[in-house]
């Protein structure tokens, strides 16, 4: 138990570091790939994906917005006016300060309180940026977890077939028909009893990653299984089997690479879905605690003040969440249209 605790408490910084590393690698690749690996870069630049991307204003726009949001969220310790995690930033005197341009705003304190303050007097913009980072970390982490789970299960089911497949896919069906939100709430309730509310709040990020990952793997499993079934019929698999390659090798080296394109396509949309689920959980109060709010929990706290007229605590984080999810979804749509894999219809 203690070890588990230890591992889990390290998850968040690790994921943060990983995300920053991935992001900087991406930029490095964008900038330096041209010179370092001209062949690979050329192949990538000539691909159908890039070609269509260049001609698609919506895709370009959403990638641009997404990149800005990603950078802003992971760079929040440096660009946010205040640190909302610092207890010193709580100032109840400033609670519910309206945005700077409104009456009662604090234009002389800029850049702090541009968008006003939340119910505890934290600068809303900073809290939103930190909250977006939490949402993104959970979304990406959960998708990594569900991808690993789903791909493993989908491959196993699709390749082995028969009883194993029936069992696993029935499980996926049941879980899907319950909807990921409900399953996530159930798993969350179990975790909460297992850990106790205090440590649940302390470990909220890794726990939410686990919850959402466990709740959403069926999407991947189904997609992978569907393409495994399609691939299995093809002759190269038959050939590999005739040659006498072991099953795991056929699965990993021959079938898996061919299932990756639909997996990639659903991954973008799944990140959006995972963030949506996280927001839902946090809105219900089962997710991130107020001390470390995600966008969902910010909307939740703002809800109480909406009726009394302090609309900004809810509307700004909500709008940010919508823009974030929308840009991811638009990119996902673009990928789906271009790669056009036969996805499982269950969405």
């Amino acid at each position: 138990m203690e070890t588990l605790f230890f591992i889990l408490s390290w998850t968040q910084p690790t994921i943060n570091a990983l995300a920053i590393a991935a992001l900087s690698l991406f930029f490095l690749w964008m900038l330096g790939g041209r010179f370092l690996m001209p062949a690979a870069w050329g192949r990538f630049a000539d691909s159908h994906l890039v070609y269509s991307f260049r001609r698609d204003a919506v895709a370009k726009g959403s990638l641009g917005i997404l990149l800005v949001l990603l950078v802003a969220s992971f760079a929040c310790p440096w660009i946010a006016p205040t640190n909302p995690y610092d207890p010193a930033s709580l100032d109840l005197m400033m609670a519910q300060t309206p945005p700077a341009w409104m009456e009662g705003g604090e234009p002389d304190q800029l850049p702090a309180f541009v968008l006003g303050a939340d119910d505890q007097g934290r600068d809303l913009l900073s809290t939103m940026l930190y909250g977006m980072r939490v949402s993104l970390v959970i979304g990406i982490g959960a998708v990594l977890l569900q991808a690993v789970l789903g791909i493993a299960i989908g491959l196993t089911a699709g390749y082995l077939g028969k009883r194993v497949e029936m069992l696993l896919m029935r499980l996926a069906d049941v879980q899907l028909s319950f909807s990921t939100l409900l399953v996530a709430i159930f798993i969350g309730a179990m975790f909460r009893t297992a850990f106790g509310v205090a440590s649940y709040e302390r470990l909220a990020v890794p726990i939410l990653i686990c919850i959402i990952g466990l709740a959403e793997w069926p999407q991947y499993a189904r997609t992978v299984r569907a393409s495994v079934l399609a691939e299995k019929k093809k002759e190269y698999v038959e050939a590999a089997r005739v040659v006498g390659l072991p099953a795991w090798r056929i699965m990993l080296r021959h079938i898996l690479p061919n299932t990756l394109s639909p997996v990639l396509v659903i991954s973008t949309v799944q990140v959006a879905n995972a963030m949506m689920t996280e927001a839902g959980l946090s809105f219900l109060g089962f997710g991130m605690p107020v001390t470390q709010p995600s966008l969902g929990s910010l909307i939740n706290t703002g809800f109480e003040y909406l009726l009394s007229g302090s609309w900004w605590i809810t509307i700004f984080p909500g709008a940010l969440l919508v823009v974030l999810i929308l840009s991811i979804n638009l990119l996902g749509d673009f990928c789906r249209d271009v790669m056009n894999p036969r996805l499982y219809k269950g969405m």
Binding site: F303, T314, G318, V322
Partner: peptide, 29 residues
């Protein structure tokens, strides 16, 4: 419909309340 998919249901609900109940006062919240 793409925008619709991207708006969380509770946020839609909050926007409705904010518009139709608080600002316009047409519908009960």
């Amino acid at each position: 419909s793409t925008v619709g998919v991207s708006v969380p249901v509770f946020f839609t609900a909050l926007m409705c309340i904010s518009l139709f109940s608080i600002t316009l006062g047409w519908l009960p919240s």
